[in-house]
Amino acid sequence: MPVINVSFQVLPQVPDGDTYAVVDRAIEVVRNSGVRHEVGPMETTMEGELDQLLEIVKEAQQACIDAGAKRVMTIVKIDYAPGGVTMEEKVGKYRNVP
């Protein structure tokens, strides 16, 4: 199975309003997964096999619920190519540019 990119954004409904703390729990799931990833201000992008990445998204949603969210809306983007696709080929030329 080719390496692909999955980006996702969780939008937790948090009763006390501390949304960032709940989103941090979702990001923690990604970090602990061991997959290559980049955290951005609006979403997190991961690189790997589709089934594994979608499972991480599911675990991240559950982490939000476990952290006190009453509901989680999640936006998912998938970039698939039969030969694979990497984050580096998309944004590598923009890294470390002053």
Rank of each mutant, 00 (worst) to 15 (best):
M1N: 04
P2C: 10
V3R: 09
I4E: 10
N5C: 14
F8M: 05
Q9I: 06
V10M: 01
P12H: 00
A21M: 05
V22Y: 03
V22N: 04
V23Y: 14
V23D: 10
A26W: 05
I27Q: 06
V29W: 01
R31S: 08
N32T: 11
S33D: 09
V35T: 06
R36M: 15
R36V: 14
H37S: 03
H37E: 01
E38G: 04
E38W: 08
V39Y: 03
V39C: 06
G40E: 01
G40D: 00
E43C: 06
T44K: 01
T44M: 02
T45E: 05
G48I: 08
E49S: 09
E49W: 08
V57H: 02
K58P: 00
K58I: 04
Q61D: 13
Q61I: 10
A63F: 12
A63D: 11
C64A: 13
K70M: 14
V72N: 10
I75Q: 02
K77N: 03
D79W: 00
D79H: 01
A81Y: 07
A81D: 12
P82E: 07
G83I: 01
E89H: 09
E89L: 11
K90E: 03
V91I: 10
Y94L: 07
R95I: 11
R95P: 04
N96G: 04
V97P: 02
P98H: 14
